[in-house]
């Protein structure tokens, strides 16, 4: 095992201890920001790869199992599913697109809905790019790296990057993001193939993974009043508007419910700060 950048033996032991635990639980307990630099770009790339390889890659791969089976059960082909994970990698938008596509929704409605759900990637990129900047790195590299901005890689990079020298941050992010992206491709493939080979009722369960996964992701993040209201309005409007108009119901539910939640939250904030 060859590692660079460790001048004190104590540091090396610490790293190896963490390396042992990070495969089973890389959650907030792991003090990623307390770790030492990797010493080289390739080292940082490998470091990102190692941090992603445990739980993050597993969870993302598992959530894409649901997407792969949704693709198949909606009547689309495996290349279409893989093409989606390759070109438009961001699970909420992908599930939304497949659902609306199978309902034959208007292209404009689909693109608008995908844009609105993925708009959360914009502030993530806005905050991450300054963190990745290092002198002399050509601008196009940031635009290329941006194709891989997603929640998991963002959380880990924002936590790890401050303890790394500027030139190691981009390789760390790329190593991490490429790994979870590959896991998503494998998950899409496995979900599609699995869905084709198990009994119908099990495929049903795999497709059910899509709403359940997001339900739990959102349920775990209810600290904020505006978010709670947005969820309640969305949940009420989604099914009821669907009876009125299938094509635009999600957009109306999102824009209407979200704007209402935001407005009420602002009003309450003005009266008495939350």
């Amino acid at each position: 095992m060859q590692r660079t950048g460790f001048d004190r033996p104590g540091q090396l032991r610490y790293r190896m201890d963490v390396a042992k635990t990070e495969t089973d639980r890389p959650t907030p307990e792991t003090p990623l920001s307390a770790l030492a630099p990797y010493g080289s770009s390739t080292g940082a790339l490998r470091g990102g790869f190692r941090d992603a390889l445990g739980m993050p890659a597993f969870v993302l791969g598992a959530s894409y199992l649901g997407f792969g089976s949704l693709v198949r059960e909606s009547g689309f082909s495996l290349p279409m599913g893989l093409f989606s994970t390759l070109t438009g990698w961001a699970l909420p938008g992908q599930v939304l697109l497949m659902e609306m596509l199978s309902l034959n929704s208007a292209l404009f409605a689909i693109c608008l809905a995908v844009a609105l759900t993925n708009m959360r990637l914009l502030p993530m990129t806005v905050t991450m790019v300054p963190m990745l900047r290092s002198p002399g790195r050509p601008g196009w590299q940031y635009y290329l790296a941006a194709t891989m901005v997603a929640v998991t890689a963002w959380v880990f990079t924002m936590r790890r990057a401050p303890s790394l020298p500027a030139q190691e941050r981009m390789p760390y992010f790329v190593g991490f993001a490429l790994t979870v992206w590959a896991a998503s491709m494998i998950g899409t493939l496995a979900g599609f193939l699995l869905s084709a080979s198990v009994p119908g009722v099990v495929s049903l369960g795999l497709v059910f993974l899509n709403p359940i996964y997001f339900l739990l992701m959102f349920a775990g993040d209810l600290a904020n009043r505006a978010k709670v209201m947005a969820m309640i309005f969305g949940a009420l409007a989604g099914p009821s508007l669907f009876y009125l108009d299938g094509d635009w119901s999600l957009l109306i539910a999102g824009l209407g419910g979200g704007t209402l939640a935001w407005l009420i939250d602002r009003m309450l904030k003005k009266r008495r700060p939350a």
């Binding site: 809905a113 969305g234 119901s249 999102g254 935001w262």
Partner: peptide, 25 residues
């Protein structure tokens, strides 16, 4: 903040629809 609320409402609308009035399988 507004964008976050809209994205969240849109996705919960989709989840609720998939559970309550699903299409397909």
């Amino acid at each position: 903040h507004w964008v976050g609320c809209v994205a969240l409402a849109l996705m919960t609308a989709l989840i609720a629809r998939m559970i309550i009035v699903p299409m397909g399988i």
